[in-house]
Design a protein around this nucleic acid. Sequence first.
DNA 1: TAGGCCATCTGGTCCT
DNA 2: AGGACCAGATGGCCTA
Length: 255
Amino acid sequence: MTKARLERFRARRVKANARERTRMHGLNDALDNLRRVMPCYSKTQKLSKIETLRLARNYIWALSEVLETGQTPEGKGFVEMLCKGLSQPTSNLVAGCLQLGPQSVLLEKHEEKSPICDSAISVHNFNYQSPGLPSPPYGHMETHLINLKPPVFKSLGESSFGSHPPDCSTPPYEGPLTPPLSISGNFSLKQDGSPDLDKSYSFMPHYPSASLSSGHVHSTPFQAATPRYDVPIDMSYDSYPHHGIGAQLNTIFTD
DNA sequence: TAGGCCATCTGGTCCT
DNA sequence: AGGACCAGATGGCCTA
């Protein structure tokens, strides 16, 4: 290899490295956008990449369930769906973001109590455990921006206790490969540049509360244990990028 | 100190 | 030839 060729090789390698960096930055940006539309989002305690992807999968799954069954997601069950397969710290984070005390998310008794279950801060006892997360202080809910979508809020406010008891003993990866709902053609997200992606709706707990929908408030055990939220006026699903789905969800959650 | 996560570099492969 | 994509290696940072 002549010196000139070596030089060219080095230059090419440097360029390739720069491109690779740029590519990975793009990937990370996309991942950040994904984090922002997750049910919980915190600038200070970012979900790891793998946990972000897992939570996204669960979130899509959970919303698909909602669409398929037409039932409001019951608060605790919804959180459990979201937490399937997530590490314990992340599960605690999600529960915290949804303002469910860890104890309230604790599943009803299962025969074999794992050590995790015995933990005072345990959120679930799914068999699957993430290979690992660092141990950042995930748990302080007041530090999180809560990025809940209207259906979730409705569910928190008007828990209807749907008919889907979570199967917490099933590892998340053994389920069907596709969500229960197949939406042809209209499940699209705005992509880069969409101002919607930069919206982060922040909800603070509010005691005692105004009801989400004007009017009566059902009293449920869940409600008794959880705070309520103030929801911005224009929080109809149409304000979100999922236009096709928005109408369906609005129908479901305003009936 | 070990383990987890991350950014970066690097070489390989495929495609245009 | 050059770009995009991928996976392995490596080192840094952070936390328990």
